[in-house]
Structures are given as C-alpha cells and as structure tokens.
Design a binder for these strands. Structure first.
Length: 412
RNA sequence: GUGAGUGUAGCUCAGCUGGUUAGAGCGCUGGACUGUGGCUCCAGUUGUCGCCGGUUCGAAUCCGGUCACUCACCCCA
C-alpha cells in the first residue's frame, strides 16, 4: 500500500516538541487570567461571509487564501483564517452582554498559502480581544500584556512597532491624500491595483519602487482628527509611563481592513526578513459592521509556530518508571498487578511485556529516559521483593513489595 | 500565484563525467557480558534509488514531464 502523507503546509507535533508548546501555552493562560481575560472557543469553520465582511473583500486573505467549501446543503463555509471575527460573532450571537468583555483564544487557523519558514496552511494563534473600552488605557494594557508575555517566554529582545490609522474619517481623508500624492508616480503591478482598492496597503509594500515613492509621502499621523490624535498621544504617553519601549512606524498598516486607530506589530531581531511574530490593533467599527451595537474593541494575535521557533528553553519531560521482568508468564502477571498498584498511587510507568534479555530491557529504559527501573525475576518473585534500580548511579536495592510505593515516592 | 534548490535504507547522507552484486554512519536485533543500560568490539537487519515516460546494448546517474519537500518573492501571524 502506498503511504498517505499529511496535507501540504501542515505538520505533526510529537511529544518532545509538545512539552515546549504546553509550557508556552501555560504561561499565556496564566497571564491572561491575571489580566482578567477568559477563554473562548469558537468553531473552526464559519459562514464565509463572516470573514469576507470583516477582513475585507480586497485583502489577499479573502481573495485567495481561504479554505472555502460548500456543505451538503450548499451553504458556503470557510475554515477560519483568523479568530477575531469569530469571537465577535459568538459574542453577538449569545446576546450582547455588559461591557467590557475580555476573551482569549488559542487554536488553529487556516490559510491557503505557499508554505515556507514560519508559514503554514494550518497554523496556531494565541490571541486576546477586549470589547467595549474606548479609553486609550485599553490600548496600553493590551500592548503591555503582549510585552509581558514575551518577557515571560524569555524573549526580551523584541521590538514593538506602533502606528495609528485613525478612525474611518481620518482613514478616508488620508487615503484620498495618499491617492492624490501618488498620482502619476509609477508603482509595482500589485500597488497599481491597490491604488483603486485599498491605497493604504501601498505603504506596506516592500518593492523598491514603491518604497521610494512612499518615502516622502504624507504620513497618516498628520491626518488624524483631533480625537484620534489625542487618543494616540495618550496611548504613547501611557506606554512611556509604564516603560514599554516601542518604535513608531508610520508605514505600518495591517493586512486586515478592519483596523482603526492604534495598530502594532511585534518583531524579534533574530528573525531574518522581519516577519512579525505577533500583531494587533483597534477595530472600533467591526462589531457594528457585524451587526452589533457600536462598540470599541482592540486585540492581538500571536503566531505560535513563530514563537516556538524562537524559544530556547527546552523543558524536559519527566519520564515514567520502567518495569522489567525476567522469566515466564506468572512473573509478568505479577508485574502487571504491581503496575496497577503503582499507577493508582500516581506513579507513571511503562511495563515491558516481552520476555527478552535484561540487558535489552535496561537499554530500552535508558532510551526512554527512565530514571528508575523496577526489576522482578524468579528470585524476587519467590522472596516477594522488587529491585529498584537508580539508572543515574546504577545503584539498586531490593525492596519489599509492601514498602515499594513509599520508597519510590521519596525517590521521585 | 512567481522563482530557485532537493528527492537514494526508519533517520542523516555518499554514489566522480551512464557499466553489471547500490554503500557508509546512526538506529534496530543479537552476541562478547548464562539476570544489569550509557563506552568498546563483532555479527545480523533494512531499499518500488519519489513517480511516469524518453535516449541507450545498459539509467540512481542523461533528457522531458509530474508529484512532494525546502527556501525565497508575494502575503501574513
């Protein structure tokens, strides 16, 4: 039979790697709870329209990266490419509750894209959403939380880039100004198209032609209305006050159309070609656009694969005990009974069932990383004892079965 | 979507410009060591040479196509 392989852009996680994932996830969960965020889990697929309406019809994500399919009744469904829209949908569907609301989530997202380093078709995001606080303190708190997380993950060397896109009026005004400014300048093919559909994205283009065209272009922060400008000043002020370093990047826009006012991205310097490892921003119009009341909101998402790839702490998994036996069936049965007793006392262990040389059993225990091995052979069987072998220093003692649990418990 | 590189044993890879039995290390199993791992030595074990087609007396090797993986562009977290 021919082997079946995993789909392109996906990967399998084995126990060795998962200990790092679990470590990182636990740190995130703890931090979120401390900041008053609670977990939310939403479906992995949603009506296609949820994403086309929120992310923006002319974004790459919606135009060419979604896993969209029809179910048996002909409904168009899409594997979620991100989670903000889902969180809002869930919040609205349950019935808008008292604000503010703080959610966090953790789970796989899906984008049909050519895989490469740090980019997968199924990838994990950890993120938070805060609904219902317009105050710039919320922006600061969200960025503080993000930076706190990276410190706890022992990645102190990050850079947070910050910008403000303003409200829809500022955005509109600036878009026009930028459009006018770019009239007559030649841009790359993609940006020529963006000019019509979404001018702001040109700021983000890495093409040399566009970069030089943009260099002297008006800055969006000069086009903010009084409220938005004040809001942005406050955010920066609070960040200073809390000593959270950031750098301003007036070219920072996001790939999703729903952002307003504060936007930010987090980079690690070691990461070549500057891909963001986490990003987020405010989306004050989105909840309304998805059918709710007008509700200010802000959030971020972290790319977990990119995060894990930068962790160096290799948390060691503790290995179970290994039960070896010598002789025939009745001794194995004795071992199985013993295993049952030990497990009931919460001692993790692995039983060897195959009657093979003690040498090979110890070899296996060594490979598995067991710190201790229990051995029962005919001799021990007769005497009602068990040999407890410490793999580290090769010392071993014969222990009466009755005392075994105690003995093991203070050793491990 | 565009471009480049790579597909040979479970893993990492060698195999020069085509030549007959396709190799090494690691791993795995066993032995030296009759009930004691990690070191050493010895033996054994493992292959549609990614797939399809072409050139040739002969293809892992050359050519075309195809698929997969990796990396970069693009995009994004």
């Amino acid at each position: 039979m021919t082997k079946i392989n995993r789909p392109r852009g996906t990967y399998d996680l084995f126990p060795e790697e998962l200990t790092r994932w679990q470590w990182a996830e636990q740190i995130a969960r703890d931090a979120f709870e401390e900041y008053g965020f609670s977990e939310i889990r939403t479906p992995i697929f949603e009506p296609t329209e949820l994403f086309s309406r929120s992310i923006g019809k002319f974004t790459d994500i919606v135009e060419k990266q979604m896993y969209t399919f029809k179910d048996k009744k002909g409904r168009s469904l899409t594997l979620r490419p991100e989670a903000t829209a889902s969180a809002i949908r869930a919040y609205l569907e349950k019935g808008e509750e008292q604000l503010p609301k703080r959610f966090y989530y953790l789970g796989p997202m899906f984008r049909y894209d050519r895989p490469q380093k740090g980019r997968f078709r199924q990838f994990y995001q950890i993120g938070v959403e805060l609904f219902g606080v317009e105050h710039p303190g919320a922006d600061c708190e969200i960025i503080l939380l993000l930076s706190e997380l990276f410190q706890r993950w022992k990645l102190k060397d990050f850079e947070i880039q910050l910008n403000s896109l303003g409200c829809s009026i500022c955005k509109e005004k600036y878009s026009k100004a930028l459009f006018d400014y770019l009239k007559g300048t030649s841009l790359c093919e993609d940006c020529e198209a963006r000019k019509q559909k979404n001018v702001l994205r040109i700021l983000d283009c890495k093409n040399k032609i566009c970069r030089s065209a943009i260099e002297k272009a008006p800055k969006i922060t000069d086009y903010l209305c009084e409220d938005c400008s004040l809001h942005f000043e406050k955010v920066k002020d609070y960040l200073h006050h809390l000593k959270i370093p950031y750098s301003l990047n007036p070219h920072l826009v996001r790939g999703l159309d729903y952002y307003t006012r504060t936007v930010f991205e987090l980079f690690l310097p070691e990461l070549e070609r500057g891909i963001a490892i986490a990003a987020g921003g405010r989306y004050d119009n989105l909840i309304e656009e998805l059918g709710g009341r007008k509700t200010p909101a802000i959030g971020f998402a972290i790319g977990v694969e990119r995060l894990i790839a930068n962790l160096d702490s290799s948390e060691k998994k503790k290995s179970p005990l290994y039960l070896a036996f010598l002789g025939e069936e009745r001794i194995l049965k004795e071992v199985m009974k013993l295993a049952q007793r030990l497990r009931r006392n919460k001692i993790p262990l692995i039983v060897n069932y195959k009657a093979r040389s003690l040498k090979s059993q110890l070899h296996q225990a060594d490979r598995l990383g067991s710190k201790f091995v229990l051995i029962i052979g005919p001799e021990e069987f007769e005497k009602g004892t068990v040999i407890l072998r410490d793999m580290k220093d090769s010392s071993q003692t014969a222990v009466k079965k009755e005392n075994l649990i105690e003995k093991i418990k203070d050793k491990i």
